[in-house]
Amino acid sequence: MSSVEPILQIKDLRTSFFTDAGEVKAVDGVTLDVPKGGTLGVVGESGCGKSVMALSILQLLDQPGKIVGGEIIFNHEDLLQKSEKEMRYIRGNNISMIFQEPMTSLNPVYTIGEQISESYRIHQNMGKKEAYKKSLEMLKLVGIASPEKRLHQYPYELSGGMRQRVMIAMALACRPDLLIADEPTTALDVTVQAQILELIRELQAKLGMSVITITHDLGIVAETCCRVAVMYCGIIVEEADTEELFENPKHPYTAGLFNSLPRHDLEKEELEAIDGSVPSLADMPPGCRFSPRCRYAEEICLQQNPELTPLGPGRMVRCWIYSDGWKGTKEVAHYV
């Protein structure tokens, strides 16, 4: 995996929200590589900063969010050094994004055709007619039935699954090199989710693009990603090839996530929940951020935040358990 040149490199990205209560570090030093042609999954629970990280890549943060440090290298250039005008050229053209809520992500007062063709008109200077023709091709590509009719319809006339297909058509209109999919199927029914995941996979193979999938669902990671990073409280706690991570999660948080899932192959009366809840970003514990909920936590965990350190080829873990000085058990229990 590591031999492939990454299409996007995120280095020590820091994004904060400046509120009345002070600075909230939503993304607090994230370093990640997105493999070319592959799919990177970023998984974590709500509030872990995964969506903020995704929005930071395209600099689409809402007020009062601000990128305060780091680099985002795309095609050997740092996106964070680019002007707003240069970024506009990249958005929707080289890097595209689709969002969680297909029901509200399309503008209700414009037709599907108007919204897709807009991408062609701004990035490829196409005329109206040509842009519509291309939009129709895109609708066909994403498998929408009777695309000619849909082109002239408004979003409210489409179901959630169809709207997400339209979002995908719009995002892929200019054949981007990278697609960021932020919880693309969370709002959809499970049978429609299967359709959309299949579609993204199919288009990825056809168009040869790379994908970042942001999700809370480990099942989706298992099915779509070749590499995965686990986020907790604004930092990455573990990163590995998907198969390895699922076979042998090293971080207690990752293991805890697996253990709290209901399993069909193991009849368990009680699930192994992770105790407590995610700490507030404004009030982080001093040591390891997971330490208050970690069953393996020792003295050092409560005092010092561990570094993300390599553990075998292509694998990174942020945990004291794997440091030389650790006295306790080096096994993290999990049911995979």
Partner: peptide, 14 residues
């Protein structure tokens, strides 16, 4: 609910 919290609530219900 998030998975880790969901597990807590499911356990509570049981």
């Amino acid at each position: 609910l998030d998975v880790s919290i969901r597990a807590q609530i499911l356990n509570l219900l049981k």
